[in-house]
Design a protein around this nucleic acid. Sequence first.
DNA 1: TATTGTTATACTCTATAACTATA
DNA 2: TATAGTTATAGAGTATAACAATA
Lengths: 141, 141
Amino acid sequence: MTSDPDTGELASELRVVLGQLIRRLRTEHAFPISQGAVLGRLDREGTSSIGRLAEAERMRPQSMAQMVADLEAAGLISRRPDPSDARRSLVELTRQGRDTLEADRRDRASWLAGAIDGELTPSERRRLAASVELLRRIAER
Amino acid sequence: MTSDPDTGELASELRVVLGQLIRRLRTEHAFPISQGAVLGRLDREGTSSIGRLAEAERMRPQSMAQMVADLEAAGLISRRPDPSDARRSLVELTRQGRDTLEADRRDRASWLAGAIDGELTPSERRRLAASVELLRRIAER
DNA sequence: TATTGTTATACTCTATAACTATA
DNA sequence: TATAGTTATAGAGTATAACAATA
């Protein structure tokens, strides 16, 4: 039954469940999902420009500019001009941004963490963790 | 490394990758994700009312009414009054709705199906299919 | 009074178009 | 001319508030 699944059907089912999860997350989670993605990327890859962030997250530069403005207003990132190219802004995590990211990663009380802990056995949690890697490869395609 | 993962960190990573996937899907996919969810539910569970659909998909009745109106305008569902309670509308798939759902399930050329086929090995596809079940249990919590 | 659904309106996230400043 | 970013505006998807019809 789970062996040799038809890819079209798998895609269709995955899409449905992703939609349901993201709707729950949007209402239950404290800050927008893609803000977390940007904070995580800045943490892993260090200082970046707005255009590079937009490309990495597959968003339009205009949308990323808006997000960067919001994150800056919230004090989670800082921005300074690129000394070698005055058109460019260099963006990096503030101390508060790093703390927010850390707090999120430690948050076992979030809706999603609670659902994972409450619904899955330890061995299922390990399987889920392994499949996150598969999902990431698909997303980055 | 993937054994005994911290649930908070797992939740944080899962959230990021779900956000990235959903953004890709929203731009690449033909029709809205949650419309597909409703069509699939009507297919599996048969005729339903708007309130019951809203509850099952964890949406507000007002939002579901809007979606049902859109799906009806697209010819994918039909609606008739409940004979035993004139307040209630009974909603069901039309032939065209069933065909659309079937076509989506067979669509190996969608962005997601293409990414799954192109990026994952057969054994990884089986692991992903198995993890969809885990994600569904979390989403339905 | 409580329930089912609708209409009107607003919010969040992201897109497109038009623009400014710099290269 | 081309590139990096911003501002203004629009769209999709879902929410809240106010309401009408029926139970």
